[in-house]
Design a protein around this nucleic acid. Structure first.
Lengths: 150, 150
DNA sequence: TGTGAAACACATATCTA
DNA sequence: TAGATATGTGTTTCACA
């Protein structure tokens, strides 16, 4: 369903989406036309889910990354639905996972200052039964990439 | 240094980088030329750090996200240098932070299976003094975006 | 800052193996 | 069915006013 050539194409454009079709085509050794068809197919099937510009967080005053672990004692589907809907719509929450093990949910939040985090924290816990929230602050971002290991 | 119009432009292209300059220009109400110059400036100054295609992890067999907490008892600069260099070059490690508090480092790893994670784990701990590694597996990804709250 | 023209890249039709 | 060739169209880039 996705062959070696497709993988090569993905590897290239997930690193740099400004590459022209001509350029990609020559690198993966197919015709421009074929390359275009393959890229189009990858887009239509959702394997390529979008093309975006990456903004440097520091430059726009969002240099503070906070990792938040959440435990709940309410495991009803009503609670879950309400919690996930509310939380994923907070723009500062950029990643949000339901976890196995001790912690029920894990969030990654980007803000400018600890005070800004506090505002987001209050938004998250408002009207929700949450048994434990623990935040840890990133001191340094060593790596943060959208490039998948293909 | 970065005004409201720049922010609007960033907001648009960090969501969808396929928008044409004409389209963006009309939305933020400046001329195509001005818009082009602003985008160029944002790129040159590194505020836009790149343009990438986002690949759907599930589609390429990388549906398992693992969050790894690492504690060390060796806080020498030699150790730190060696550890960060080695770890950030592992392609499965897509995020890597130095943290404040209990945990020293936090990694986000994308793999296909738990067995694949084990291989990455072995790579990370090889030849390194690490006092504690604890992995938690994501059951469900509820949100994962590159869009910053601007 | 705006205009316009050249360069470039994209999308598609048509043809071939 | 997949790839190659050819071409009209749209977009970007940049010089100049």
């Amino acid at each position: 369903m996705i062959d070696a050539t497709d993988k090569q194409i993905l590897r290239l454009i997930q690193r740099d989406a400004t590459l022209s079709l001509e350029n990609i085509a020559s690198k993966v050794d197919v015709s421009v036309n074929t390359c275009w068809r393959r890229v189009k197919h990858l887009e239509e099937t959702g394997i390529i889910s979008g093309r975006v510009a990456i903004v440097d967080p520091e430059s726009v005053g969002l240099g503070q990354t906070v990792i938040v672990s959440i435990k709940t004692n309410n495991h009803s589907s009503e609670w879950l639905e309400r919690f996930t809907e509310k939380t994923k719509n907070i723009p500062e929450v950029v990643e949000f996972y339901r976890m196995a093990g001790e912690v029920d949910y894990l969030l990654k939040i980007v803000v400018n200052t600890v005070a800004d985090y506090d505002r987001v924290y209050k938004q998250i816990i408002a009207d929700m039964e949450i048994s434990d929230v623990s935040a840890t602050f990133a001191m340094e971002c060593i790596k943060n990439t959208t490039e998948l290991p293909l």
